[in-house]
Amino acid sequence: MSYDRVNMEFYRGLSPGTVNILRTAKIADARKTLVSIPPKTLDSSWNMINNRFFGRRRPAPPRPIPPGQYLEDGFPVLSAGPTPPVDTATWEFTIHGPGGNGNDSGTETLGSWDWSALNALPQTELHTDLHCVTKWSKLDTDWRGVTIDTLFEDAGIARPGGFVMAFCDGGYTTNLPVEDIVDGKGLLVHTYDGEPLAPEHGGPVRLLVPHLYLWKSAKWVRGLKLMEQDSPGFWEGYGYHMYGDPWREQRYTND
């Protein structure tokens, strides 16, 4: 297949994902042809070329990162409001049954842990990459905490189906399918890189679900509410994706 104007038209019927695969595979050959194509030919919602965008680039990541992401060495802080003061002396994490309207109103408490109870549970180390919807990815982060599996087991909760709403100090919420936080995929973390998790990064305890965009890894988390039906949390209600898989670039509603 050669990349001439006819083929640019040919792309129009394909999904963006297919086009990206095709382009990535063949684009090196196509480069000279593409540059010479008049801009109007490329006018499509998923395929335009900035002809002079050769310039400086971020170093290539040591392994693939999700589409649209760039590597970040620092650890940016993004929160919708101030960092709430959280005292481990009064901190408590609770799991609530389904029902009720608010985060925990009118629902049965299935399990609760204070700071020392959380620390007395079996601890799990996790080495993982992070992907934030604001485009940065951070590789090789080290965390320590307690898996959601451990919490369910400790409270004697049979693995539920459906969804959870994570709720937090400061009022933040985010929704996740239960199957995405069990089998070691979701943790309550209190230690980052060997140190207590800093408040601006969600300390003393945040949820960590690293295979989804980082807004799902709720900072200052205080509990989970089981839900039979999925329901939007804080950012999901503002047009962010209900699920948030970075590898499928599910940043916003209908992505």
């Binding site: 382009r23 990535t24 684009i27 090196a28 480069r31 593409l34 540059v35 395929n47 335009m48 070329i49 900035n50 002809n51 965008f53 050769f54 680039r57 971020r58 589409p67 649209g68 760039y70 604001t134 485009k135 940043r251």
Partner: peptide, 16 residues
């Protein structure tokens, strides 16, 4: 807004 730049070789970068 999110901005996406695409280089002639297919390399892309996005920022807000």
């Amino acid at each position: 807004y999110d901005i996406r730049l695409t280089a002639p070789d297919g390399y892309q970068a996005q920022r807000s």
